[in-house]
Design a protein around this nucleic acid. Sequence first.
DNA 1: TAGATTGTTAATCGATTAACAATC
DNA 2: TAGATTGTTAATCGATTAACAATC
Lengths: 217, 217
Amino acid sequence: MCMLQSAELSRPENRVGVGVAARLSRYLQVLTQAKKMGKDRISSQEIADYTNVNATQIRRDLSKFGKFGKRGVGYSIDGLLDEIRRILRTQGQHNIALVGAGRLGQAIGGSSIFGEHGISIAAVFETDESKIGRKVGSVDVIDYRFLKEVIRDRNILVGVLAVPAPAAQQAADDLVEAGVKILFNYSEALLDVPSDVTVHTSNPAVDLLHALYFHLT
Amino acid sequence: MCMLQSAELSRPENRVGVGVAARLSRYLQVLTQAKKMGKDRISSQEIADYTNVNATQIRRDLSKFGKFGKRGVGYSIDGLLDEIRRILRTQGQHNIALVGAGRLGQAIGGSSIFGEHGISIAAVFETDESKIGRKVGSVDVIDYRFLKEVIRDRNILVGVLAVPAPAAQQAADDLVEAGVKILFNYSEALLDVPSDVTVHTSNPAVDLLHALYFHLT
DNA sequence: TAGATTGTTAATCGATTAACAATC
DNA sequence: TAGATTGTTAATCGATTAACAATC
């Protein structure tokens, strides 16, 4: 049964394109917040206002997977949350490792949003001895020297780099050696990694340049 | 002269599409880092490796504005930096305001990357009295009560929200009332703003969902 | 020269948008 | 019923990709 479903999902026609998946996860975020604000249904136009994705595009993305809405009414937030989570298969627990317990590491690790999406920070590593043993969110900060051992033991596939640029490449190398396949790079460094490892670089300043240009144009 | 240039730039054929602008600013970031690493030239393929943008697309984006490369050699990093900065017109100084001097606010405000791109944090606001008077980066933290006055005085058009979700809408309202037109929302809140204000919501957890899905697919 | 890389064209693909019948 | 909103189609636009002559 499980294998059958797995085979079914791997057939091309059942797989979700990366563009669709990226948009679905943005809808998920809006729905989560809208629910917190006490709403129980939402229209494609409302989701469009918050995501800057066209309302027609949103309806089309959703209708690929089923008829989740009610004409004249909109979408049930609870119902749609379940459907999108099912489509993205993010219901299961994913463990991630955070490297760096500085200001940015603390800000990321202290966020409650990971838990809400089935993601848990399984370990936090730091070289600065004054921070080892303290907590980031609810997780103990571990000595960086134990990184490889802990990553392997806990079978962690996702690493978040919140370290200064000069330390980023070494940390990336260590994570990759321990088996990490997805890296979130919050440093300014350009990382070289093997081709089977995905790097996502996220940077407030680059985002800001985009927005400034949008406005100044 | 200045008015003439302004009229010229507003003609459609001289304006840069938002897609192109977004990609150019990513190239800018890669070039900045490559220069720091001591390189003085770079190929479109190397930029492609770091940005996940196709090398052909990069060459085409650049060739819209001139022939900046040398066949068989690549691009001069210094030369290309100047050209892209000129195209994006980010050479001038832009002032931004940061609201919230917590962990995330400190992490953002303490980054040197803003200065490198001609952006300066002109003011940091905070309601927590224990943080007022301290510094974030090289800027004094100001009492939130002076927000509107300072924003107006310094003619600030860009605001960065690094506050808890429950405080975000009020802070956005105050910034907009003072004249801010671009908001960077690092909180989880969904913000309602007038239609002439642009909101960019950036969220590590949503990014992480994208990446996880890419990998699990 | 030989190898490498740009600048550019042509073909394909996915995203965007407008429009509207279906229906709650 | 009347108003609102979905689900879907068709047309357009921009991004992606492969290929390759030009040329450093």
